[in-house]
Simulated scan of single mutants.
Amino acid sequence: MDIAILTFDGFNELDSFIALGILNRLRADGWKAQITSPTARVTSMNGVVVEAQQPLEFANRADAVIFGSGIYTRAIAENSALLDSFQLDPLRQLIAGQCSGTLLMARLGLLSDLPACTDLTTKPWVVQAGVRVVDAPFHAKGPIATAGGCMSSQYLAAWMMVKRAGVEAATKALHYVAPVGEKDVYVERVLKVVEPFVE
């Protein structure tokens, strides 16, 4: 299971790194999430410089894609040359977006009439793009998911794991990253959010 975590300049570290860390807990099962960027290096909103593990084209052949968010996403959404480089396929791929990453999904026509989640800052832009925003941390239908709020990256990761590896594998991965003393409660809460959206 190859997963592209789309990460652009000005990215939010919590979006990219939390999903990366959780999804790679299934590495022994053949899962590999990688930072995927349009340039060799990207700088986060807080000045952290990261080397891309994969070029942007990797997203087109990956099994799953996560659109992370960042402070320049609105400008990226207007970059038609960059958006035209995506040839994503919901029939083959799981595709998810977090916060302003939802705006990129909207611009690519991936949301159509689906309700979507995003952060409060991005909400007006997503609405302007013709998408109905719901007041929830996570929503999914079929192979498309969106999440709102930095810490909701855990829901995107959990949803992907449940859909493609099953509840048992997802539970094991989430249990590993959960805070000590709260592991069972944490896993139960995360799965309660995502399981209703898994057919």
Rank of each mutant, 00 (worst) to 15 (best):
M45F: 09
L82Q: 08
A157T: 05
M105A: 01
L114N: 04
K32N: 15
A169M: 02
S37A: 15
A170G: 08
P90A: 11
K123N: 06
P38H: 02
F11C: 02
R92D: 00
I66T: 00
T146P: 01
G166M: 00
V127A: 13
L120H: 13
P179C: 05
L26P: 00
G97P: 02
D113M: 01
R189E: 04
V42F: 14
A19L: 14
Q34E: 14
L20D: 05
D89E: 12
A178N: 02
A170C: 13
T146K: 00
V49Q: 10
Q54G: 09
L91T: 12
L20E: 04
D29L: 10
R27D: 03
S37V: 06
T73Y: 09
R189P: 01
D119Q: 04
Y72H: 14
V187E: 01
C117I: 12
A64N: 00
W159Y: 13
A77T: 12
S112M: 04
L14I: 11
I71E: 14
A170H: 07
G10E: 13
F138Y: 13
I3D: 02
N12W: 12
I71M: 15
D29E: 10
A136Y: 03
V126T: 06
V49A: 12
A40M: 09
V42W: 13
S152E: 04
V131T: 15
A147M: 12
V65G: 04
W31D: 02
K141D: 14
N60I: 09
P124A: 11
F8G: 03
I71V: 15
E188M: 10
W125D: 14
V127R: 14
A96P: 02
A59T: 07
N46T: 14
V131M: 10
V180E: 15
L174T: 02
N46W: 09
A173Y: 03
T7D: 04
D2K: 15
N24V: 08
A145L: 01
P38F: 00
A147Q: 07
A28C: 00
A140Y: 06
F138C: 07
Q87V: 08
I5D: 03
P90K: 08
P124N: 12
I95C: 01
A147V: 12
R164G: 00
R27Q: 14
I66G: 00
D29F: 00
Y72S: 08
L120C: 11
Y155S: 00
G30S: 11
Q53M: 14
E13Q: 15
N24P: 14
V126M: 06
A62L: 04
L56H: 08
H175W: 07
D63V: 06
K123M: 13
M1C: 08
L26W: 01
F11V: 03
A145R: 00
T102N: 05
V49K: 13
L14H: 03
L56V: 11
S153C: 13
R92E: 00
L156C: 09
H175D: 09
T43F: 05
W159T: 05
R61G: 06
A169L: 08
N12H: 13
R74L: 15
Q154C: 12
V185T: 14
D184G: 00
A75G: 06
H175A: 11
